[in-house]
Amino acid sequence: MTTTVTTEKTTGQPEERFDFKGMIEPVWCPGCGDFALLNAIRSALRQMPEVERQNTIVISGIGCSGRVAAYLGVYGFHGVHGRALPTALGVKEANPSLNVLVMGGDGDGFSIGGGHIPHAARRNPNMTYIVFDNEIYGLTKGQVSPTSPKGLAGKSTPEWPALEEPLNPLAMLIAYNVSFVARVYAGSPKTTTQIVKEAIAHPGFAVVQAMSPCTTFYNTYKLWAKQVRTLPEDYDPTDRMAAFARALDTETMWLGIFYREERPTYEEMIAQQAARLRGDEELSDDERLRRLIDSFV
């Protein structure tokens, strides 16, 4: 996205075969890791017949990655910077039968929207959040992000390298007790598809840190290719301490499911409370309202 986008063409035509392609062609720069992630997400959705197209909605933030909402051929909502999570929560609790996918960048999710993650974790809604992490601000042309390594000078801020330590999103997510925590890499599409499938299938709040090199402002393909390794076969993702240990090992970019735990979803808990408040009596809404009004006599 090195040049400003002005117009994106609408085909307005139905697809020949439904394949989770939207009516808009991606506007990303050639080689951008987001393409590989998009394809892996499409493959995951195609391989999950239980995920009905018309019941799927993608809520995205603002950034290059945020454009993804329009590329999947399902319902979408491309909102404001940093608020995808609470927006998605509203969608999910308003209609729990929707399959809610949340996507956005590292700046969107870990900087401006970082305050929403612990609260989503506390609630555990059954939705999947994929953070496209390129360790840089892509859309605004290369400023450092909260995951940029210390000392990195953004292309647009060459005189001022980052003085800040980078966040460790995985350790943070595990500390927040997110019920499914994983990392994937755009350069490993097969594992990405597999893990995205598991994240979507996870009954609770699943967060996937999806490493996605920004070819234009911070090309990390070579660096990360040397760092990535898949978590060992015998790794136990239910062991939270082990998950911390892997997350804190920043020498290696471990890929896989770091942590998973099944606990009641927010929707289930809300439904239970509501049933308790409603009681057994079958009443129409009108009758309920009449009685409620009467209680103020």
């Binding site: 909605i57 809520i59 909502f77 909102g79 404001v80 608020r83 609470p86 927006t87 998605a88 929560l89 509203g90 969608v91 999910k92 609790e93 308003a94 209609n95 929707l98």
Partner: peptide, 10 residues
């Protein structure tokens, strides 16, 4: 944000 999301959901 969540109200807007809920409204989008109908």
């Amino acid at each position: 944000a969540s109200c807007i999301g809920a409204s989008v959901a109908g």
